[in-house]
Amino acid sequence: MIVGRVIGWFLLFCALVLLGWDAVSSLSSGTWGFAVLGQRWYEIDQAFGGASLNILQAGIERNISVDLWDNVVAPVLLWPAVAVFFVPGAVLVLLCRRWRGPRAPRRFTSKR
């Protein structure tokens, strides 16, 4: 349960960072909007000098299925990046929280 909560909070933190990135980008461009996951992944990939998005596409299409890339991964890359991280993070935090029964009132007793 704690692992799920930690992963959930990490995803929520990533969503918050992406929301801030979108806000700063919106202030500089003058229009408000959420960036899609594929765009943000590409920008991060270019900053580190990698080609992970292209490698992922080639690996999935060659080794698993072209349909998986076309029907699952590519549409997810077109979703807002904030939503991709926020929704699973919130679900994990809520599902993995500590469940307690109804709260009993605390009794304060004094020692005599």
Rank of each mutant, 00 (worst) to 15 (best):
I2A: 06
I2L: 10
V3D: 02
G8S: 11
W9T: 14
L11W: 05
L11N: 02
C14N: 10
A15Y: 05
L19G: 12
G20P: 00
A23C: 09
A23F: 14
S25W: 10
S29V: 14
G30F: 04
G30Q: 03
T31R: 15
W32V: 11
G38H: 01
E43W: 12
A47Y: 04
G50V: 06
G50W: 08
A51K: 10
S52C: 01
L53S: 06
N54W: 08
I55R: 11
A58N: 09
A58G: 05
G59W: 02
I64E: 00
S65C: 08
V66F: 08
V66D: 03
L68A: 15
W69M: 02
W69D: 00
V73Y: 01
L77A: 00
A81V: 06
A81T: 04
A81Q: 03
A81F: 04
A83M: 10
V84W: 01
F85L: 13
V87W: 14
P88Q: 06
P88I: 09
A90L: 15
A90T: 04
L92C: 09
V93H: 01
C96T: 15
C96L: 14
R98K: 13
W99M: 11
G101I: 10
P102S: 06
P102L: 10
R103M: 05
P105Y: 03
R106D: 12
R107N: 11
T109W: 11
S110L: 15
S110Q: 08
K111W: 13
R112Q: 12
